[in-house]
Design a protein around this nucleic acid. Structure first.
Lengths: 338, 338
DNA sequence: ATGAAAGCGCTAACAT
DNA sequence: ATGTTAGCGCTTTCAT
């Protein structure tokens, strides 16, 4: 009933543990005959190696840790899938932690990972300062990869999205579709929110249009749902003279709310007004009015980060690179035409 | 640069490893003075115990494994969060595997978990037969908890949703709202799909109405999105004489498609037709026409399953119970009124 | 109240 | 080609 150990197989075959171990790890100095005998018995007894014991000896746990602010989130769960795909394909195990956007919890999870001797840690961090990570770095040679951008220094190993580009390509697309008065339902006053807004503005001026502050709607005031916020922001925009002919939003959900507001007011999409969102959410983008949206490439970010973590794990002198910045892509659908 | 070990602290303090170990585990036979000295140094040196080494000796890894068909899924990622909450609160680590709905991958993940000596495994299984689990059970005393229902035998330890009830309460609610011709946009021909359909039918007859096969629409034919399938199924239903006055759907997304079809045909909701979905999806249910929906209680299922796993782990003679069946609840919104 | 010895399951380094 | 010794970081058991 106890799991089969190396020694059990050895005794059973009148060999030493070492011989079995060598066979299992494919060492060359074993006769073909013994090898076959061992392999056969291993299979019969359904031997499953104890990786923990192994790790204690080798120092490698073949396990990496992943920490996200939430698992129940379209963007983050896709990141997790990308990470999992690479990690598992490479024969590693994946420990996950849910930080609930709480820096303290995040730290506790990291410590839990360290106590389990993970080979690497991947995270979308909620920490405001790098203090914790700097300290950590000085204490261990821990292999950390951020999936959001951190200030230089400790956080040089990261894979992140070119957020400015998100705002830029959405806006540039609307312009190329013929829109001239493009509104932006902007996100929160965070680093990412600001970068996307900057990209929007840049696209406007780059194409010879003039930036109009009154076309940028703040949506973060009320405590309601994103949908409602998008809806209301759009209502306000439509009440002003010179209503927009193009609208982009920080998220697909906000864009959906805005589209509904416009439609309920009798606006024809895309003929009279075009819409673009961000997230390329499989669910939202394929509803009644298929929504043009920016693909945030969450899955790829997860994959790339995982590869980066594993890579600098194996090759001692791999491109212990600074960081990778992934470019978002635009997915055109019926809400824009041109 | 190497992590601090028990021995490092012992040497530093001129004590033995054992004393440090005892202090850390709160054994009583240590003088208050020594205890304080040790604790102080442990904190200063930021000692993090090596749980793997610990496990090798104690046989407990303080780690559980979780396998889901997908992480990028509203229902399953919520289950995962429920699991994570309990697991982490109890000081355990969580290994996750993504089976991608592939029984073979599922098995590989389980073996990976076993090789890491997890204390328990939680899963939403994709295996058709119990053969694999029976074999597993005979080989190890592995603590398995299913989060979907398995045939009796090995799979007696499970937490699952009362699926029949899902169909029943949605339908009963529509009836209590005054609907008399209730259509059902049914799901796939799976165990769950059939159970929900059965519940729907039962509610119909229980309330003295007559079951009408032509009001049950199959939505699984085409290869399009759920939204489109719901939309089209609704269009067909509306083309028949005696259109329904109530509509329920297998998922919220299908309900959304159906609602949009009705609205685009000028139907007033809920005055002329009411709608109910399943999933209580935070995103979908709070859109334009707030959707009455059945809460599938994913988070609670995750929590309960995790507790069940941990519990039978500690108390040797805990209620090594057969299984838990969770009842869904109804969440009323504007798409129904009565 | 403190510590020495042995061993968990495995492998690195060295015999034979 | 096969086996021996030692030890990874910790705890269990038993001395002192």
């Amino acid at each position: 009933m106890m799991p089969v150990r190396l020694k059990d197989i050895a005794d059973d075959l009148n060999l030493s543990k070492m011989t079995i171990s060598k066979v299992l790890r494919g060492q060359a100095d074993i006769s073909a005959e013994t090898k076959a005998r061992v392999l056969k018995r291993v299979k019969e007894l359904k031997y499953i190696p104890n990786i923990n014991a192994n790790s204690l000896r080798t120092g490698q746990t073949m396990t990496v840790g992943l920490i996200l602010p939430s698992l129940h989130d379209a963007h983050l769960s896709e990141v997790a899938e990308g990470v999992a795909e690479v990690i598992h394909t490479c024969g590693y195990g994946l420990l996950v932690g849910d930080s609930r956007n709480d820096p303290e919890l995040e730290q506790r999870q990291i410590e839990m990972f360290l106590s389990r001797q993970v080979d690497a840690i991947l995270l979308v961090s909620t920490q405001e300062t790098d203090e914790f990570f700097e300290q950590m770095h000085s204490l261990r040679k821990t292999n950390l990869v951020f999936m959001n951008r951190k200030s230089p220094g400790v956080g040089e190993r990261f894979v992140s999205l070119q957020e400015e580009e998100v705002g830029r390509i959405a806006c540039a697309h609307l312009i190329s579709c013929g829109c001239r008065r493009i509104a932006y339902l902007r996100g929160p006053r965070t680093a990412i929110g600001d970068l996307r807004a900057k990209g929007y503005r840049q696209a406007i001026t780059d194409h010879g249009l003039t930036f109009q502050p009154n076309l940028v709607a703040d949506t973060m005031g009320t405590g309601e749902t994103e949908y409602r916020r998008g809806f209301q922001a759009m209502m306000k925009l439509m009440a002003t003279r010179g209503r927009p002919d193009g609208v982009m939003a920080y998220t697909d959900m906000m864009a959906a709310g805005a589209m509904d507001a416009a439609m309920s007011a009798g606006v024809k999409i895309p003929a009279e007004m075009m819409f673009a969102g961000c997230g390329n959410d499989a669910l939202l983008c394929d509803m009644r009015m298929p929504l043009t949206s920016v693909n945030l490439r969450s899955y790829e970010i997860g994959q790339k980060a995982a590869r980066m973590a594993l890579q600098s794990n194996s090759n001692a002198k791999a491109p212990k690179g600074r960081g990778l910045i992934v470019r978002p892509t635009l997915v055109k659908r019926a809400s824009t035409a041109g």
